[in-house]
């Protein structure tokens, strides 16, 4: 499945790269298809789950994180962790004063 050069560098096989690309294309088709069904509030989470699966595939195989030093993955993933924190706290904050800003909030 994978080869190494004389210097011990990992080389991804062409079959693997093509396979990942096909998986990403199927993921794109899936993301568009599920928008035709109404799962209520779940729609956005299904879409995000598919997008995140695609991003993980790109990271693991196209970006070689699977064979890389774990510290590189740690650096990259930490950016997403801090982004999640940023989004989460911003949402908690903004939802605490929506009832003051918008009459009738929250919409029941």
């Amino acid at each position: 499945m994978s080869e190494h050069t004389a210097h011990g560098v990992h080389v991804a096989s062409l079959r693997l790269l093509v396979g990942v690309m096909i998986a990403l294309m199927i993921g794109t088709w899936l993301t568009v298809s599920v928008t035709h069904y109404d799962f209520g509030f779940l729609n956005i989470w299904i879409g995000l789950a598919i997008a995140t699966t695609k991003a993980i595939l790109v990271g693991l195989y196209f970006m070689h994180l699977r064979w890389d030093k774990p510290f590189n993955a740690f650096v990259f993933i930490s950016a997403f962790a801090f982004l999640a924190l940023f989004i989460g706290i911003a949402l908690i904050d903004t939802q605490h004063y929506q009832d003051v800003l918008i009459p009738g909030w929250p919409v029941e």
């Binding site: 510290f71 940023f86 989004i87």
Partner: peptide, 28 residues
């Protein structure tokens, strides 16, 4: 490579501000 990954982490945070704006506006 480590330097590149640190740069890419800052790229995620660079776009991150816009994703925060997006999320706050869309939720509300």
């Amino acid at each position: 490579k480590l330097g590149m990954w640190v740069f890419l982490a800052t790229e995620i945070l660079f776009f991150g501000g816009l994703f925060v704006a997006y999320t706050v506006y869309r939720v509300n």
